[in-house]
């Protein structure tokens, strides 16, 4: 337990277009743990998630992010992903013309041996996962999320419903096998059935090899994905941390009690 956490966020300060959003946020997540990060709209939850993944628009103005003991601030998003970080987007991006299947195969192959450019400029032979093996893997994971097989041939997130998008995020998480997964409001826009399917998917993946940071502003998803730790975020900082009971307290009392607590602490 004394071992350093897999993901360590230290006194993180982040600005977007000159505006300071995160103002000294600290957090530690270990594999095997489920953390919930709760906070009202605009408190900076997505800013944290995207900063962890290295979105070029978010500028780290102070603090550090360590992953498996090393700072990842100098790494681009793709390197962070290959190192074992994953973000399920609040608003997944459509990639027209690229099928779910083609995309996932490319993403898996990017994790295998790097492709070497040939000197004559021709296409290097595609090594990596065998097509048959890939199809079996994809089918297996799609079944877990109760996705129809025809889904694999649709263009990624293009014209998907809210629920389909969120399911596809979890499908990617399942296929890419991260060590730490951040789920940014995966519950928003989902009806109860979809929420259950998505949560069961996440629960099936969790275990000693996966740490999860569930970002939400409702307690609802926490009925399905049980957190070990709950953090409350207000105005760019974590202002309160506790066990699962904190989520219930927030549910009944609202964020105001945290705000008031913060006031009175001054």
């Amino acid at each position: 337990m004394s071992q350093t956490a897999d993901l360590v966020v230290q006194d993180l300060h982040v600005a977007v277009e000159g505006k300071q959003i995160l103002k000294g946020l600290s957090l530690e997540v270990r594999k095997g743990e489920v953390h919930a990060l709760m906070g009202p709209n605009g408190s900076g939850k997505s800013t944290l998630a995207n900063t962890l993944m290295g979105h070029p628009r978010y500028e780290v103005t102070g603090g550090d992010i360590l992953f498996k003991g090393e700072s990842i601030l100098g790494l681009e998003s793709d390197a962070r992903s290959r190192a074992g970080l994953f973000l399920a987007f609040q608003y997944p991006v459509a990639i027209p013309g690229v099928t779910v299947s083609n995309f996932l195969r490319t993403a898996l192959n990017a994790r295998l041996a790097p492709r070497v450019a040939t000197t004559d400029g021709s296409m290097p032979a595609r090594r990596g996962i065998a097509p048959k093996e890939f199809r079996a893997l994809l089918r297996e994971h799609m079944a877990l999320l109760k996705m129809d097989e025809s889904f694999a041939l649709r263009y990624l997130n293009d014209g998907f419903s809210g629920g389909e998008k969120k399911r596809t995020e979890i499908l990617q998480m399942a296929m890419l096998k991260p060590e730490i997964a951040i789920m940014d409001e995966t519950d928003s826009g989902l009806d109860i059935d979809a929420l259950r399917i998505v949560s069961e998917g996440v629960n099936a993946l969790s275990g000693p090899d996966l740490g999860v940071l569930v970002i939400t502003h409702y307690q609802r998803i926490l009925d399905y994905i049980k957190p070990h730790f709950v953090h409350v975020m207000l105005d760019g900082r974590i202002t309160l941390s506790g066990g699962p009971e904190l989520a219930l307290e927030l549910e009944s009392r609202g964020y105001d009690f945290v705000r008031e607590g913060k006031e009175s602490a001054r």
Binding site: H55, A94, I95, V98
Partner: peptide, 26 residues
């Protein structure tokens, strides 16, 4: 689009290739 694909581990070049291939696919 580039950011999204890169967060899945695709190097910038592969991400751009996928976007351009997708552009022509229809």
């Amino acid at each position: 689009q580039m950011y999204y694909l890169m967060t899945r581990g695709l190097p910038r070049g592969d991400a751009q290739r996928l976007v351009v291939e997708g552009f022509f696919a229809p």
